[in-house]
């Protein structure tokens, strides 16, 4: 009964949605309104104004840097909320948990161990070179975080967490937020507005280092946050 009613409701809801969709300008045309207003400026002036060959990075870090600053704050807040919800016990009073009951297959262990250095190199390349190639801070950071998760799965969380001790982790988790604050305030002192990058003048050489710093901050912070969320959820006794 509930299913039938819901289906009827959804079919009813699909009618206005599909009607609205049929009125939109055709997909892929170059005179689509989203493509004619501000985007030509980004595409033509972007590399000159921001020093990024990758216009997507230019948009997220330079033109819309506030958005990205908000985003890293959101994910940091989510981590804090996860800690709050799961009520992580302090390491001292933490009960020793039996390690995974299912033995890890040697194939998995071998593959993770062999691939790990290449994955690290790939993600560091993405983070540092994000302004001219696809990828960037968050992608690289998430890949490192995923590697830490994979390592926890094959070696056990205890041993992996020793790579990133509690004291270090606590400072790495807000790295993205702190880096945005540092670069933003530096931009404010030098150029008068929060999170502004030089367009011309004597400080022009600072542009790419600023972007790289923000990317490194996002990458390190993202990796620490992703891995910490996993450890928090995994370490909580269900």
């Amino acid at each position: 009964m509930r299913r039938a009613l819901t289906l009827a409701l959804l079919i009813l809801a699909s009618v206005p949605l599909l009607y609205a969709v049929s009125l939109l300008p055709p997909v892929g045309s170059e005179d689509n309104p989203t493509y004619t207003y501000v985007v030509p400026h980004y595409l033509e002036e972007g590399p000159e104004e921001t020093g990024c060959e990758n216009i997507v990075t230019a948009v997220i870090l330079n033109y819309r840097g506030f958005d990205t600053g908000g985003e890293v704050t959101v994910i940091f807040t989510a981590l804090m909320a996860v800690f709050g919800v799961l009520l992580i016990p302090r390491p001292a009073e933490k009960v020793r948990q039996p390690e995974s009951a299912v033995p890890v297959s040697p194939v998995t262990l071998f593959i993770v161990r062999t691939l790990a250095p290449f994955i690290v190199v790939f993600s560091v390349y993405q983070i540092i070179n994000g302004h001219s190639t696809p990828g960037g801070g968050f992608q690289g950071g998430t890949i490192i975080g995923a590697l830490l998760i994979a390592a926890s799965l094959v070696m056990g969380s205890e041993r992996t967490q020793r790579l990133l001790p509690e004291g270090v982790r606590r400072w790495l988790q807000p790295a993205a937020v702190l880096m945005f604050a540092v670069v933003g305030v530096t931009g404010m002192l030098l150029f008068g507005e929060y999170l502004s990058y030089p367009i011309e003048g004597e400080y022009l050489f600072l542009r790419v280092p600023f972007l790289t710093l923000v990317e490194i901050g996002i990458g390190v912070g993202g990796a620490a946050i992703v891995a910490s969320i996993f450890w928090a959820m995994e370490g909580s006794d269900g």
Partner: peptide, 11 residues
């Protein structure tokens, strides 16, 4: 391709 939606969706 249009970079603006890509930036928004990344966030």
């Amino acid at each position: 391709a249009n970079p603006l939606p890509q930036g928004l969706i990344l966030t």
